Amino acid sequence: MPEARISWRGVTMNRRTVSMVEAAEQLYRSKFAILQGSYSKGGVEASAGTHDGGGAVDIDVRTKSAAQRVAVVKAMRAVGFAAWLRTPAQGNWPYHVHGIAVGDKELSRGAAIQVTEYHRKLNGLANRGKDDGPPGYYGMTWELYLKAHPPKQPVPDSTISLAAMAYARTHDAMTGVWGADRARVIAWAAHPRVGAITKAETVPAAGVPWHLHFQRVIRKVQLHFKLEVTGIFNNSVAAEMKRYGYTIVA
């Protein structure tokens, strides 16, 4: 199947290539300025057709130092690009980093040849000179990089709003962020590390309104932690939740 193409920062690339650039940016710890993307048939003549298909990207490094330019190349190679620093001395172009995503299914013929040259430790130019970039990444692909650096799972929201807790005490229907806060408190109370209520008590019994059920849950939490039993989510309950890593906000 063809790669899904998207418009990204003013250029067209496929999602795989965008993900690779974003990963390289994380390694470099700064966003790149994109000079040219992919699928630009008939675009920049000096590119020799390497950007006609997928997987191609040029990064603007005109304002960067020599060390920064090498660092961009290294970050690109580390995530699976065949990447080189291109200089004005090499052709009719400004300083930029030229990258071809190894393994892209829609590489142009010229881009595919450059990947082959990269694996041969050459510079990907017509003169077939030796590679002048940081070595050690010739066998890297995006898939290998992902295997070694799986995407981090998003950190679950651990914020509880006092306003939501006050609302939950007197209202049944709660959706959105406040509804999520109420569900979070009830799930915390039933968690094995807390054990203030059982799993069966995470939902109201038949005929019991949600606001009364929530008050009962809070009473059981207060009993469990030997607090004053009020059925109100107060500072004492908030302090217990903070001990478990929750953040309490207004």
Rank of each mutant, 00 (worst) to 15 (best):
A78P: 09
A82E: 04
A83C: 12
W84M: 06
W84H: 07
R86N: 06
R86P: 01
R86E: 06
A89V: 00
A89I: 00
Q90T: 04
G91M: 02
W93M: 03
H96S: 07
H96I: 06
G99Y: 10
G99N: 09
A101E: 14
E106R: 07
E106C: 06
E106Q: 12
L107V: 02
S108Q: 01
A111P: 05
A112R: 11
A112H: 05
A112S: 13
V115G: 09
V115I: 13
V115Y: 13
E117D: 13
H119V: 10
H119A: 14
H119D: 15
L122N: 12
G124M: 02
G124A: 02
G124W: 04
A126Q: 08
K130T: 10
D131G: 12
G136D: 04
G136K: 06
Y137F: 15
Y138K: 07
Y138E: 13
Y138G: 00
Y138M: 07
M140I: 12
W142R: 15
E143A: 09
L144F: 11
L144V: 08
L146G: 04
H149G: 08
K152D: 15
K152E: 15
Q153M: 13
P154N: 06
P154H: 03
V155Y: 05
S158H: 12
T159Y: 08
S161M: 01
L162G: 00
A164E: 02
A164Y: 02
M165F: 05
M165S: 03
M165P: 01
A168L: 07
R169I: 12
T170C: 09
H171G: 01
D172K: 03
A173S: 13
V177F: 06
W178D: 10
